[in-house]
Design a binder for these strands. Structure first.
Length: 910
RNA sequence: GCCCAGAUGGCGGAAUUGGUAGACGCGUCAGACUCAAAAUCUGGUGUCCGCAAGGAUGUGCAGGUUCGAUUCCUGUUCUGGGCACCA
């Protein structure tokens, strides 16, 4: 009887499905555990080997927790709204609903083959009305809530209205409020709503007639077609995430994310404290307001920089500088933000104007430069070259004289951002330490009425509308310029069918092409749709109660499941998605709809699996392809080839000739050693780079169990690594070797019910301990290796005993579920192995009484000494000195010291 | 430019708290079985010197702390990822 993985896997997948073994109930006496994967966007390219990495890890952990006696929620679904489906529709005329459906079926098919333990009865699909009804409902919750600064939490906007009606606000009296028109009232409310509408800049491409995402713009032109792109102000929806900045920051202390992830989030939020200070401008009535974190350096200000986008520039530029300034502004306009970011070259131009230092009246030249952004702080800075690296380089580059206010702390060749120096050249601050000076300056600035203390955040409110079709429609009708929200009873507002997806007029979304839908007796419907992250900001709650038609999630279900105990996903969208879902959770908590204010208790980031691309080299202008080692003798063009017809680095030239309908049929090859050797480069795995490896092929060839274990065996889950299929054989061999502990090719069944020996139990319990430790710390690669060691040792011991093998199978059931289930049943069990209990580790089986100690001389290991564990230092010294090898190294002298660390090692110091 | 992560044999990686560097697997070499092949099994395999015993050297690079450093500290180089130049 041999290991027929194809038959076994098919059989158990069907059986598990039929018996609904993965269905989980919201009621149980067991403790709960919630294991979640970041759900995928179902792209047309299907799964490649990079996708399942995190899914396999979470699957192993979910199964492990189940064996450990937990009621485990482990669901999966689809983040199904999004740009690519819409783009595909524009290019191929296939409706997004259809292509999305096809893609989901394909994904599901691929996922099923790998044997995941998802409870598919809880599947969510963000593009289905049953789901997005509640996304719209939650949007209305945000819209109808405001952030109360006193209570530091969200409250219903009705409470704010009641307050305005009764007491007014600092801006208006109650009487004034009550006399306001509906539109005027709405304008005031809009300033407080958590989901609000305002004007914001978008990338507008006239030629394509549409708004473009940041990554669709390259070098200031559209990626498709290379058309010019300009910034244009349009009405947008936003989420007031900045109101939650502080709580999002504090919440990081309560969750178990990696330090680097927390750092990324807190850098994104970017809280800083400092002051806003107004500088007068020589000869103008306008003032420049700067934000600075270092008010103590006010006497070191040698120039000011205003963002090129600032409206003030036109007033600042003097006639002599006008041409230079305009040229520079045109240059900046042509640059994408990404370009400005990566720019090492220092650029900028003097406006000709001077600001006045409010404390000593010094005239300070005002410059403009692309390194100052309009969107942060006040869009203008006071530059202190001796204390800020960038300011220093700028001053050096443009020969701006530098004032030293920190004495010897500044060496003239490098800025020093210290806060500990004692100030010099600083008028009333001379002799004051910088830390103390900060307070002093803020005090004086406030007294003089030229500024104030200010806490600043990098984070901006999140843009929440897209001029697109394939997303949730806003439950909003515009009555002239005033938005009116639909009633909850009117939800869902269905996304109307569109025969042809194309942009609307004037930058509006495709929905504006449907007048029957847009025009209602009340007014015009909002034609933009919600962004991709709308549905994904709360999907983890829907899994808890996926079929509920009355509520987004029943409170009892939410209280039972609570936080996601383990959330697994990549870092790529992590900052955005994690912050948005954390914010939504906090809002829902504030409104008392759920009982926790952080969605994810623990986060594990899986690394990216990269592809290893292969290149062939065509001699420029010919049909000849030259092998890698000979390419330097020619002028060549590198062309990517499909990795599937390259064996290692050797090209299958016949397959290459047949590739792409014979595009290379006439190719001639210049070989080395009779072979065509390809070049290689590690890069992102992508269909367009021909370096994708499809899991289906591997599952077919080796089985799902082998595939699962191999993905884990590659290395730590958190680490990025290039995919290499070589080595999968080793894992497959391991499973075959495991099988041979139960069945022999000739004798058939060889397992017995005999009692296990001490040596066998030692192997087993060593394994239990290690598997438990490795799984708990997500070290699945060493887990796989532990199984290999266990099977190797049991084979050496010729241990075919059910007592030992049964426990091994239970542990293996989370890593290689199919083979474990099959052998479990062949051993005579009738219930599924999923309902077994994880074996209990017992110390007594692995207790040792002695240890082979490494003995080092001066830190270099020279020999080994078998010693009892309870030996004393004195006894150790005696034994060590008697040892022949130690004596040889001692050369008759006495050692200075003998270090003995129990259970570790011995070191003899000469 | 800024932020984060990483660098260990021919390759993927292991070493969990500062204590035998290279577990496990791939590849490769030798052997067994076989008419042969596949499969399987046994043994070797960081580098250098040496017939061997043995020795030297070795975790990107340069230093430091320590009886002892892949692990801690300082500096540095390279690679990967992220970014909203964050004052």
């Amino acid at each position: 009887m041999e290991y027929n993985f194809r038959e076994i896997e098919k059989k158990w997948q069907e059986e598990w499905k039929e018996k609904k073994v993965y269905q989980v109930s919201n009621e149980s006496d067991k403790p709960k555990f919630y294991v979640l994967d970041m759900f995928p966007y179902p792209s047309g390219a299907g799964l490649h080997v990079g996708h399942p990495l995190g899914y396999i890890a979470s699957d192993i952990f979910a199964r492990y927790k189940r064996l450990k006696g937990f009621n485990v929620l482990h669901p999966m679904g689809y983040d199904a709204f999004g740009l690519p489906a819409e783009q595909y529709a524009i290019e191929h005329g296939i409706h997004p609903a259809i292509s999305t459906d096809t893609n989901i079926k394909n994904f599901r098919n691929q996922l099923d083959k790998i044997g995941f333990c998802y409870d598919w009865s809880r599947e969510v699909n963000t593009s289905k009305p049953e789901y997005y009804k509640w996304t719209q409902w939650l949007f209305l919750k945000l819209y109808n809530s405001y952030f109360c600064n006193t209570a530091q939490k969200a409250k219903p906007i009705s409470e704010l209205i009641a307050k305005y009606e009764a007491k007014g606000s600092s801006q208006f009296t109650a009487d004034e409020w009550n006399r306001f028109s509906t539109g005027e009232k709405e304008e005031w409310l809009m300033k407080r709503r958590l989901a609000f509408s305002a004007y914001g800049e978008v990338n507008w491409c006239e030629a394509l007639g549409t708004v473009l995402a940041n990554d669709e713009v390259v070098n200031g032109v559209s990626e498709r077609g290379g058309h010019p792109v300009e910034k244009r102000k349009m009405r947008q929806w936003y989420l007031r995430i900045t109101a939650y900045a502080d709580r999002l920051l504090k919440g990081l202390d309560t969750v178990d994310f990696s330090e680097s992830m927390k750092e990324m989030q807190s850098n994104w939020i970017g809280k800083s404290s400092g002051a806003e200070i107004d500088f007068e401008i020589k000869g103008l009535s306008d003032k420049i307001r700067v934000y600075t974190t270092r008010p103590d350096t006010i006497f070191g200000v040698d120039f000011m920089v205003v963002a090129p986008e600032s409206d003030l520039i036109n007033k600042l530029k003097t006639p002599t500088q006008e041409i230079k300034v305009d040229e520079y502004l045109a240059y900046v306009k042509s640059r994408s933000e990404r370009e400005r970011m990566a720019e090492k070259k220092i650029s900028g131009v003097f406006t000709g104007a001077y600001a006045i230092n409010p404390f000593d009246g010094r005239e300070i030249p005002i410059w403009t430069s692309e390194y100052v952004l309009a969107g942060y702080g006040t869009g203008a800075i006071m530059a202190v070259p001796c204390g800020d690296e960038r300011d220093f380089k700028f001053a050096q580059h443009f020969d701006i004289p530098i004032t030293n206010i920190i004495g010897t702390h500044f060496n003239g060749t490098e800025a020093n951002a210290t806060k500990d120096a004692v100030l010099e050249n600083s008028s009333f601050l001379n002799g004051v330490t910088m830390r103390a000076a900060m307070e002093e300056v803020i005090k004086r600035v406030e007294e003089a009425g030229i500024g104030k203390r200010k806490i600043n955040y990098k984070m901006r409110d999140a843009g929440f509308s897209r001029q697109r079709y394939w997303g949730e429609p806003f439950p909003i009708i515009w009555e002239n310029e005033t938005p009116i929200a639909l009633k909850e009873s009117e939800l869902p507002l269905l996304l109307p069918h569109l025969e042809e997806v194309k942009p609307g007029k004037g930058g509006e979304g495709p929905l504006s092409n449907l007048p029957d839908w847009v025009n209602t007796p009340q007014g015009k419907r909002e034609t933009s749709t919600m962004p991709g992250y709308a549905g994904s900001s709360w999907y983890f709650l829907r899994y808890m109660d996926p079929q509920n038609e009355q509520e987004f999630c029943n409170r009892k279900a939410a209280d039972y499941w609570g936080q996601v105990d383990l959330y697994i996903g990549g870092t790529e969208h992590a900052v955005g998605h994690l912050l948005y879902s954390r914010m939504w959770t906090k809002v829902l908590y504030d409104l008392d709809l759920i009982g926790f204010d952080e969605p994810f208790k623990r986060l594990l980031n899986q690394g990216m699996i990269q592809g290893s691309s292969r290149f062939v080299y065509r001699i420029h202008g010919t049909n000849q392809f030259v092998s890698f080692g000979l390419k330097d003798n020619h002028q060549i063009d590198a062309i990517r080839v499909d990795v599937n017809f390259v064996d290692g680095y050797e090209l299958d030239t016949e397959a290459f000739k047949k590739w792409r309908n014979g595009e290379f049929a006439d190719a001639e090859f210049i070989l080395e050693d009779g072979k065509y050797i390809c070049g290689a480069e590690v890069e992102k795995m992508s269909k367009s780079k021909f370096n994708t490896v499809n899991p289906d092929d591997l599952v077919y060839k080796y089985g799902a169990d082998t595939f699962r274990m191999y993905e884990m065996f590659l290395g730590p889950v958190e680490m990025s690594k290039p995919w290499d299929t070589k080595g999968i054989e080793g894992v497959h061999r391991f499973l075959k070797k495991l099988w041979r502990l139960f069945f022999d090719e000739i004798k058939g069944k060889i397992w017995t019910a005999e009692k296990a020996t001490d040596a066998e139990l030692k192997v087993l319990h060593k394994t239990i301990k290690k598997i438990e430790e490795d799984t708990e710390r997500f070290s699945f690669n060493t887990g796989v290796s532990t199984f290999m060691i266990c099977v190797n040792e049991l084979s050496d011991l010729k241990c075919y005993k059910k007592e030992v093998l049964e426990s091994l199978l239970i542990m293996l059931a989370s890593y290689a579920p199919h083979i474990a289930e099959e052998l479990w049943h062949l051993l005579g069990n009738t219930d599924t192995i999923l309902n077994a209990s994880f074996p209990k580790f017992e110390e007594k089986y692995i207790k040792e009484s002695s240890k082979a100690y490494p003995v080092a001389i001066n830190g270099k290991t020279r020999t080994e000494l078998l010693l009892p564990l309870d030996i004393t230092q004195k006894e150790v010294e005696e034994k060590v000195l008697q040892d022949a090898i130690v004596q040889k190294w001692l050369e008759g002298k006495a050692p200075k010291k003998i270090i003995y660390v129990k259970n570790k090692m011995i070191n003899v110091v000469l």
